[in-house]
Amino acid sequence: MIEYRIDRRTGVATYLQIVQQTKQALRLGLLEPGDRLPTAREVVEATAINPNTVLKAYRELEREGLVEARRGQGTFVRKSLGAAAAQSPLAGELADWMRRARTGGLAREDVAALFNSALEREFTEGEQ
């Protein structure tokens, strides 16, 4: 079962933190279709955040089609995210590119800046 870590100082809305952490878990394969998300009660008991925040996050995930609420049973993962991405040739190409950048003498910060600017250029619509 996934455990959420809520950081109040990031400035990111609490419900978005839950949404992002769920997606992260889907991407990393920590959650797979059919898995049950913790109930709102379990989440608030562990994190001491407002129950409505949890429900709002789950509704958001449901709206995106990632999870589904089954009456009386809980909220379940419907589909995985980016598991394909992690295994696709693109992952290898990116790793390859990183290796070349490092051997080419780029520092970590340089690589991050390049990566982020490319990311910004390609995904300007703020896609989640």
């Binding site: 608030v44 562990a46 001491a48 955040i49 407002n50 129950p51």
Partner: peptide
């Protein structure tokens, strides 16, 4: 706070908590 919210969510309880420090309650 977790236990309190768990009770609230389980029973649909309305809760009013007082404090002079907002940070104490803000997330909940």
């Amino acid at each position: 706070m977790g236990a309190l919210l768990a009770v609230a969510v389980e029973h649909g309880t309305s809760v009013v908590m007082s404090s002079h420090v907002l940070a104490e309650l803000e997330g909940a």
